[in-house]
């Protein structure tokens, strides 16, 4: 009997898939394994990795946050607007971005838990469009560049080539891993996802637990927004149409999260994020069209879920056989 959610509990298959992909791509293209390219992969992963934190929390509660991508773009544009308006303090920009991102996440939580909208799919879909529009409004639909160094530091700086943004990702993931697996609030999130009514009737303030998840999702989106500004040097409201939300969902699901809630880990999500970037990166190196990339990524998502289902069936069979002895 293994304990749930220990490292052994994470699908070894997903880790194996990542390793196999890396080996194959290394063989296919020598550049893949170069130091610069690996660091590039880490750098590219950071943005999605931050979005996926919030997405994972919401998925564990059996919810979803479709506004993470638009929230990241909006917070980047908000900083852009401040930049244009002559705000010189990068710290102030980032602080405002974090508060704004968190505030919109909080609103998502309130819509769900206090105003009782039926499913966050709809409310966060609405919020996605609101944020997209706001991103264009605050910047007057213009690209903004020339951000202060302090804002760009997180997304741009590297130490010996190793991107600071990914170091930040690792720190956040370790903290979130401990949070989810070792704290009362973390466990409450899994319990609320597994059976929200039983959790509520056990005295857990499920409304606050859920609101917390959506608020944190907003804050993580803001961090992703800051990273994006550093990486590209610009903020661009038009980016809100990019498939950021679905990439985050894909990372979580490949990593073992489930739409029915109660499942998912930080380690799995990290692997999911890496798989997505490695795939995109490798295919670009091999000069394969983005259309093919999309097809393969789609198949990977389906395969990951299929593997999970098969694994559960095999587990059930193993139990059955064990009992027959």
């Amino acid at each position: 009997m293994t304990k749930k959610r220990t490292f052994a509990g994470i699908q070894m298959g997903t880790i194996l898939a990542l390793i196999i992909m890396c080996v194959v791509l290394s063989l296919a293209n020598r550049n893949f394994y170069s130091y610069d390219n690996v660091m590039g992969i880490f750098k590219q992963t950071a943005f999605n990795a931050f979005l996926s934190v919030g997405m994972l929390l919401c998925l564990i509660t059996a919810g979803i946050d479709l506004s993470v991508g638009a929230n990241a773009v909006f917070t980047a544009c908000l900083m852009g607007a401040m930049n244009k308006a002559g705000v010189s303090s990068g710290l102030l920009m980032m602080l405002v971005a974090l508060i704004a991102g968190g505030a919109f996440g909080f609103i998502n939580g309130v819509l769900l838990t206090r105003l009782h909208l039926p499913h966050p799919f709809v409310s966060t879909l609405g919020m996605k469009n609101v944020l997209w529009g706001l991103a264009l409004v605050v910047t007057g639909s213009q690209m903004v560049s020339g951000f202060p160094d302090s804002v760009q530091w997180l997304g741009r700086t590297t130490i010996q080539g190793f991107p600071v943004s990914f170091i930040m990702v690792l720190i956040v993931y370790v903290i979130m891993h401990i949070f989810l697996s070792r704290t009362a609030l973390g466990r409450s999130i899994y319990c609320a996802g597994g059976n929200i009514e039983a959790s509520r009737l056990s005295g857990i303030n499920t409304a606050n637990v859920l609101t917390f998840c959506y608020t944190l999702s907003g804050v993580m989106a803001a961090i992703a927004g800051i990273v994006s500004v550093g990486r590209s040097g610009i903020s661009n409201g038009a980016n809100a149409t990019q498939p950021y939300d679905t990439d985050a969902i894909a990372a979580c699901v490949i990593g073992g999260a489930s739409f029915t809630g109660g499942k998912g880990t930080m380690v799995g999500t990290m692997i999911g994020c890496l798989i997505i970037t490695v795939l995109r990166n490798g295919f670009s190196l091999l000069s394969i069209q983005s259309s093919i990339q999309n097809i393969v990524l789609g198949l990977v998502i389906i395969l990951a879920v299929l593997m999970d289902v098969l694994r559960a069936n095999m587990e059930a069979k193993r139990r059955r056989l064990a009992s027959a002895k």
Partner: peptide
């Protein structure tokens, strides 16, 4: 009950505070 969770997690469903040191279980 949270049927998807193990016995031990269901046992503390109503008493997480009493089973925590600070925020940590």
């Amino acid at each position: 009950l949270v049927l998807t969770e193990p016995i031990k997690n269901n046992m503390i469903l109503a008493s997480m505070k009493q089973h925590s040191d600070g925020p940590f279980l």
